[in-house]
Nucleic acid binder design. Structure first.
Length: 568
RNA sequence: UGGGAGAUAGUCCAGUGGCAGGACGACGGGUUCUGGCCCCGUUAACCGAGGUUCGAAUCCUCGUCUCCCAGCCA
């Protein structure tokens, strides 16, 4: 992608890269990779990694970034996830050209490397059970002890390893281990497992392999094979770096550098595949692409633009300290983008019927409305007006409190692009006392929304003509969790305990202006005075218009109300 | 005395020996046919204690707190 912005904000990774270019460490090359495991859908945390890796490469002349699937555990990975990941990366706006790789493509070479290690006396086949290996490993504060199989001869190890691949042993009966140091303070160096037997069909290599390499053995060598310069990963791999270096040094191959940064945490949601999957499996949400999910597919369906997510990833920066970004920043980014690009329309979420007593029965006018108030290039459209209209329930109060500027008995307001109206009567429900219908008069002199006598109104309301409007459903999404950090379980609570019961409210009797009759799924609009909405690409049909609320507009009135409530 | 890492406004990120800065949020104001956008302003931070230095967020020492690691997951 092209970046025309001014110089990017410095961060510690950029600084390292600049320094490496200066010192010619990699002949001035910048080569990164995005290495997802195809065992789930991508989420906004992955977007940070994608933007980082592809972005850093794009910033530098000749910089490259590969897409590489880390597919070394066929028991968890599927081809479907591969496709969804590819389409998500593409949607985000990045391109790997012909550099689509799979760790599984390297299985032959990895196998050869393993044999080299065995021949060097640096790896051995261990018959200890999983349980025994754990016991032999020691604890955080006490060193481990050598496996009884640690000193098998090279020949024996070679033969055993080949028999592992030949399928002669059961899953779990033995593994190939690196011979490093059972007393290391770093548990990853206590003879880590390099290969395990997994008699599972691989989504790409089929049944060719009975043994599969572990992450620590695969990742560094894949980076090396691809001539990666800067191998970026998250903080929890810091402890693995000595092993990353050990493997490459022992094998004496090209050596990229691993750099760790803090993964993204976002307030009011969770970003762990395990937890997201749990929400799906328990039916709290509809799937990976539920608009409340922080997944790229969920955000996309919700109406988020790729650009807004890229902007967000730029603004959160990159550092090494654990942090939680306020979801308000994400919301700010999408509002900013959508404000610039989405056409305005009028939609009433909770209709209140208004009869304009002095407007001729049966008459209809086509009023001209701007599609974007500050971008005339977006053009105009006609909106029908008639004697009976709907306004938003919230826009009328029989007893208006201080600072409520909207409609009330005897009060005059403007209907956007239409007329001034004054409320002259309220029809209430006998039982509840709720207003169910308003009677108003209009001033014909104010057509278009301006009064020739210079008279002012304090509010402008959106509206739709009752008979011309279309029925629609609006899905009003809110934060998935009530707590900023759902995983903060110090009170012994499960993260699901603070799920927001109102993360989805359905407004089923919306009325929208007729210009949206042939709206295309996925199209984004601003419903004036309400928020940004996106025609749901999954459930919306020609007969049934269903809109997802991407984000609300900033709502000053809501904040005033909150403040007033606090006072009382 | 396990190993590794990190501490800068409410939040996120800069600043690496020379005036602590940006963004988000919050608050106040201006503007407005969206209580939107936009504009202006206010708020608010160097984990602590010593030391080096003319000068320390930055260098040194000693503390404190937080995070990660005991998968044949990645």
């Amino acid at each position: 992608m092209t970046r025309t912005d001014s110089a990017p904000t410095p961060n510690f990774i950029r600084n390292i890269i600049e320094e490496d270019i200066k010192t010619n460490k990699y002949q001035g090359r910048v080569y990164t990779r995005f290495p997802p495991e195809p065992n789930g859908c991508l989420h906004i945390g992955h977007a940070k990694s994608i933007c980082l890796n592809f972005g850093l490469a794009a910033e530098h002349e000749g910089g490259l970034c590969n897409l590489r699937f880390d597919d070394t555990n066929p028991s968890k990975e599927t081809a479907e996830y591969i496709e969804s990941i590819k389409s998500d990366v593409r949607w985000l706006g990045f391109d790997w050209d012909d550099r689509l790789y799979y760790a599984s493509d390297y299985f032959d070479r990895l196998y050869e490397y393993a044999i080299q290690l065995i021949k060097k006396g640096k790896a051995y086949v261990c018959d200890l059970s999983t349980d025994e290996i754990r016991k032999y490993r020691g604890t955080l504060t006490s060193s481990g002890k050598d496996s009884p199989y640690r000193n098998r001869s090279v020949e024996e190890n070679l033969a055993l390893f080949k028999r592992m691949q030949a399928g002669e042993f059961e899953s779990g009966s033995c593994v190939l281990r690196a011979k490093i140091d059972m007393a290391s303070g770093n548990l990853n160096m206590r003879d880590p497992v390099l290969y395990r037997i997994l008699k599972v069909e691989h989504h790409r290599s089929g049944n060719k392999w009975r043994i599969y390499p572990m992450y620590d053995f695969t990742h560094c060598l894949s980076d090396s094979i691809e001539k990666i310069t800067h191998s970026l990963c998250t903080l929890e791999f810091e402890d693995h770096r000595p092993l990353y270096n050990w493997v490459l040094d022992e094998l004496n191959v090209y050596h990229p550098q691993q750099i760790e940064y803090a993964r993204l945490n976002l307030s009011h949601t969770v970003l762990s595949k395990r937890k997201l999957l749990e929400l799906i499996e328990h039916g709290y949400i509809s799937g990976w692409d539920d608009p409340r999910m922080p997944t790229l597919s969920g955000l996309r369906r919700r109406g988020y633009t790729a650009k807004s997510i890229r902007t967000f990833c730029d603004r959160i920066g990159v550092a090494k300290r654990d942090s939680t970004v306020d979801i308000a920043l994400l919301e700010h980014c999408i509002r900013e983008d959508l404000n610039n690009r989405s056409p305005r329309v009028m939609a009433v979420l909770q209709p209140l019927r208004v009869i304009i007593d002095n407007y001729p029965e049966g008459q209809t006018e086509e009023l001209e409305a701007m599609n974007h108030p500050s971008d005339p290039d977006m053009g105009t459209r006609k909106v029908p007006f008639s004697r009976i209209i709907y306004i938003e329930k919230d826009d009328f109060l029989e007893e208006p409190p201080k600072k409520f500027y909207r409609l009330a008995p005897g009060r005059e307001v403007r209907l956007r692009y239409a007329y001034f109206i004054k409320c002259v009567g309220v029809v209430k429900d006998d039982k509840t006392g709720e207003p169910v219908e308003l009677h108003c008069t209009y001033d014909p002199e104010t057509k278009g929304g301006d009064s020739p006598d210079g008279r002012k109104v304090k509010a402008t309301l959106h509206w739709v003509s009752a008979s011309h409007s279309l029925k629609a459903q609006a899905r009003l999404y809110d934060h998935l969790f009530l707590k900023a950090n759902p995983s903060d379980n110090k009170d012994g609570a499960d993260f699901k305990d603070c799920l927001n019961p109102d993360s989805l409210r359905v407004a089923d009797s919306c009325r929208i202006e007729p210009s949206l009759a042939n709206a295309k799924p996925g199209t984004r609009y601003q419903f004036e005075r309400i928020g940004y909405f996106c025609l749901d690409p999954v459930d919306s049909t020609g007969e049934r218009l269903i809109f997802n609320r991407t984000v609300t507009l900033r709502d000053t009135w809501a904040r005033i109300q909150k403040a007033q409530k606090k006072k009382n």
